[in-house]
Lab assay of single mutants.
Amino acid sequence: KVLVLALYDYQEKSPREVTMKKGDILTLLNSTNKDWWKVEVNGRQGFVPAAYVKVL
Rank of each mutant, 00 (worst) to 15 (best):
D35A: 12
F47K: 03
N30L: 12
N42A: 13
K22N: 05
K13C: 06
K1H: 15
A6Y: 01
L26C: 07
E17W: 03
T32A: 15
R16F: 15
L3H: 10
N42Y: 10
T27G: 07
I25P: 02
D35G: 11
T19L: 03
M20N: 00
P49D: 02
L7Q: 06
G46N: 01
V2D: 14
Q45A: 15
L56T: 10
S14H: 08
P15Y: 08
S31N: 15
S14Q: 10
W36E: 05
V48H: 00
D35P: 03
L3I: 07
A6K: 01
L56Q: 10
L26P: 02
P15H: 13
E17Y: 09
D9A: 09
A51F: 07
K54L: 13
V39G: 01
R44P: 01
I25Y: 08
L56S: 06
N30S: 12
Q11G: 11
L7C: 05
L7W: 04
D35N: 08
A50V: 06
R16H: 15
V18P: 01
K21Q: 13
E40Q: 09
G23C: 05
Q11A: 14
T32K: 09
Q11P: 08
V4D: 00
K22F: 06
K13I: 11
G46Q: 02
Q45S: 14
S14R: 09
L5T: 13
P49T: 01
R16S: 15
V39E: 00
Y52N: 07
K1W: 10
Y8R: 11
I25S: 04
S14F: 15
L26T: 01
Y10G: 00
W36L: 04
K54C: 06
L26W: 02
V4G: 13
N42M: 11
L56K: 04
D24H: 05
E17N: 07
V18S: 03
E12M: 10
A51D: 10
N30D: 15
A51H: 15
V2I: 11
K38T: 09
L5H: 07
W37G: 00
V53P: 00
L29P: 00
R16P: 07
L26D: 00
D24V: 04
S14I: 05
S31V: 08
Y10W: 14
V53N: 01
A6S: 06
Q45M: 13
E17C: 04
A50G: 05
T19K: 05
V48E: 00
V53R: 00
Q45L: 11
L28N: 01
K34W: 06
N42P: 09
W37F: 11
E12G: 15
L26Y: 12
L29I: 14
D9N: 08
L5I: 10
T27A: 09
A50N: 03
R16G: 15
V18I: 15
A50W: 02
W37K: 02
R44I: 09
R44S: 06
T32R: 11
V4K: 01
K38V: 11
L7A: 04
Q45T: 15
K38Q: 15
L5D: 01
T27M: 11
P49F: 03
V2K: 11
A6R: 00
T19N: 09
E12V: 07
M20K: 00
V41T: 13
K22E: 11
V4P: 00
N33C: 06
V41Q: 14
V55E: 09
A51C: 06
W36R: 03
V2A: 10
E40D: 14
E40L: 09
E40R: 07
D35C: 05
R44F: 12
F47R: 04
V4C: 06
T27L: 15
V4W: 05
E40C: 05
E40M: 08
N42F: 09
Q45C: 07
G46L: 03
L3Q: 15
W36H: 03
G43T: 06
L7F: 04
Y10R: 04
T19F: 04
V39D: 00
Y8M: 15
V41E: 04
N33P: 06
P15Q: 15
L29S: 03
T27K: 07
L3P: 03
L56Y: 10
L26M: 07
K34F: 07
R16T: 15
L28Y: 02
K13L: 14
V55L: 12
K1T: 08
A6C: 06
K22V: 10
R16V: 14
K13R: 10
K38C: 08
I25V: 12
K1A: 15
K22P: 04
V18C: 05
N42Q: 13
N33H: 13
N30F: 08
K21D: 05
Q11H: 10
F47A: 03
V48R: 00
K13P: 05
L26K: 00
D9R: 03
N42S: 10
G43Q: 07
A6N: 01
Q45P: 07
G46W: 02
Y52W: 10
K54W: 05
